[in-house]
């Protein structure tokens, strides 16, 4: 039995997380650039939710992150939503190997998902326009971004995991009360 109150709490937590991550990504971290890249918080969030909650919620969170990006990127609406949707789905496939307090898999996954994201963006925006120097972009944009995202991803993962365990606990308590 799931209470509607818990679902709302859960959704609000996701909205707050995306909001904070977006602000960090656009207004705080451009001042903390390493190797002239900023970390990609939204990819880290999508990967984390996919990993700890599975495909469905990875996709939903990815879709939400993508829509926020679409509103602020000025390209066609739905473009990033589509990419993030599939990133969420992809990371959801890793759920079966997920055990709560292991940090290696989340780190690895966030890095991999960010590399996939970078490669997709390269093919859509650069390869199609006849820019074939993939090696350059891989070494100068995709790899640094993946490494930086992986590092901040550890914190993102840890925070999201804590929030979710908290919500789950409060949910099981209230369910017990009803039964």
């Amino acid at each position: 039995m799931i209470e509607i109150k818990d679902v709302i709490k859960y959704i609000i937590s996701i909205i707050v997380i995306i909001f904070v991550a977006f602000l960090l990504q656009t207004s705080v971290f451009p001042g903390l650039k390493l190797a002239s890249v900023t970390p990609n918080f939204l990819v880290a969030i999508t990967a984390t939710y996919g990993l700890i909650r599975g495909r469905t919620q990875g996709m939903s969170v990815g879709f939400a992150c993508g829509i926020v990006l679409d509103f602020f990127s000025g390209y066609y609406l739905g473009f990033y939503a589509l990419i993030f949707l599939y990133l969420g789905f992809l990371s959801g496939l890793f759920k079966k190997w997920f055990f709560g307090d292991d940090f290696k898999l989340p780190m690895f996954l966030i890095g991999i998902i960010d590399i996939v994201y970078g490669t997709v963006i390269y093919f859509i925006f650069f390869f199609i326009r006849g820019d074939y120097s993939f090696g350059f972009y891989f070494m100068n944009v995709i790899m640094p971004e993946a490494v930086y995202t992986l590092i901040v991803g550890i914190f993102v993962y840890y925070i999201i995991l804590k929030i979710n365990t908290r919500l789950d606990k409060s949910q099981s308590r209230s369910t017990r009360r009803i039964v």
Binding site: S60, G66, Y76, L77, L82, L85
Partner: peptide, 19 residues
């Protein structure tokens, strides 16, 4: 999840086309 994936993909593609 596979239905959700299909539904959301279609939504995205429709959004892309309309915009």
């Amino acid at each position: 999840s596979k239905y959700l994936l299909i539904i959301l993909s279609v939504v995205c593609i429709m959004l892309l086309f309309t915009s």
